[in-house]
């Protein structure tokens, strides 16, 4: 009988062991923050910003690892297939999460990733060439209805979030336009200014600078109003149900236990509320936009769903 009790006790202990281990889970090895793009870009800036301001809240080192390739999908694939131990984080929320898996076959899906925290968001602004006659969203829709496929839009690459944003707009407005992809946003802007394409998407900062120089017409943002351009209406205000933008946050492998995600979330949230974060974000022109893990997941799923619907004709 004593033996039996001991056995039950042991079994219970074994069963509870993982629970209690997670309840006061703490990382014991360095945490890798994987960036799907090269050092020096916007995603990399977010990673280094959050890593350097969160370091003081962690006892283990936070290491930013650049694994650029295939528009960020290489890194997403690595994290989606990683151990769910909370030690491998991905900076996600952009093309690789909401856009590419809907266009192409990828070796991962958004369901294999789980949000920890959203750090920042970046508005996207549709612009046309100044003097082109396309001064508003209505102009674009009217011109496209008159000549289906005649208008061209430039993107930073096939399956990118810029490409998707135009597709969602076209679907909502019931129009058809021709996609001309470029290797990145810069050549697309050059092609717009040279009059070789009709429209493209810029960040609010670039859009403001080009518009003040009289080079582009600002049409609308693709989500809500951007703080840098408070007078510019969003497509949804204009009656087109579009909500696509570039978000950046941290995600882990989907099977990572709740306790681990909670621990990471709390530390990174504390980091986002720190003074270091505030001053660095201001300097790097990053617009903080906190969301908890579940809400970040929901935001990514909603965008992904809208893009998927726009693609299924």
């Amino acid at each position: 009988m004593r033996n039996l009790i001991a056995k039950i006790g042991l079994a219970a202990a074994v069963a509870l062991a993982p629970m209690s281990a997670f309840a006061d889970w703490k990382p014991e090895r360095p945490i890798n923050i994987i960036v799907g793009f090269s050092a020096g870009g916007g995603t990399d800036a977010t990673a280094r910003l959050i890593a350097s301001s969160a370091q003081e809240f962690f006892e283990v080192p936070l290491v930013v690892v650049n694994r650029p390739g295939a528009s960020g999908t290489l890194a997403a694939e690595i994290v989606a297939g990683s151990e769910p131990d909370g030690l491998t984080l991905l900076v996600a929320g952009g093309s690789e999460s909401t856009s590419v898996p809907n266009h192409l076959k990828t070796n991962y899906s958004l369901d294999q990733l789980r949000g920890v925290i959203r750090v920042n968001r970046e508005h996207m602004v549709i612009v046309t060439k100044a003097g082109s006659g396309l001064k508003s969203a209505e102009d674009i829709v009217a011109a496209a209805k008159e000549n289906p496929g005649g208008l061209t839009f430039g993107s930073s690459g096939p399956a990118s979030i810029l490409h998707s944003a135009f597709l969602v707009f076209a679907k909502q407005a019931g129009i058809e336009m021709t996609h001309v992809p470029f290797q990145g946003g810069a050549p697309a802007l050059a092609a717009l200014l040279g009059g070789h394409i009709d429209m493209t998407i810029l960040t609010p900062g670039d859009a403001k600078a080009q518009s003040e120089a009289g080079n582009v017409n600002l049409i609308a943002t693709t989500s809500d109003r951007a703080p840098q351009l408070p007078d510019l209406a969003s497509l949804s205000e204009l009656g087109y149900d579009v909500n696509v933008e570039n978000m950046k946050g941290l995600v882990v492998q989907a099977d990572t236990p709740d306790e681990v995600v909670q621990y990471l979330h709390d530390k990174f949230k504390a980091a986002m509320e720190s003074e270091t974060f505030e001053s660095l974000a201001g300097r790097a022109n990053i617009q903080p936009a906190y969301l908890n893990g579940a809400d970040f997941d929901a935001a990514m799923q909603n965008m992904s769903k809208a893009i998927k619907e726009a693609l299924s004709e």
Binding site: D206, K208, A209, Q210, A213, R283, N285
Partner: peptide
Amino acid sequence: VMLGVQPGPL
């Protein structure tokens, strides 16, 4: 940009 200068035509 990070240094607080917005590059552009102006």
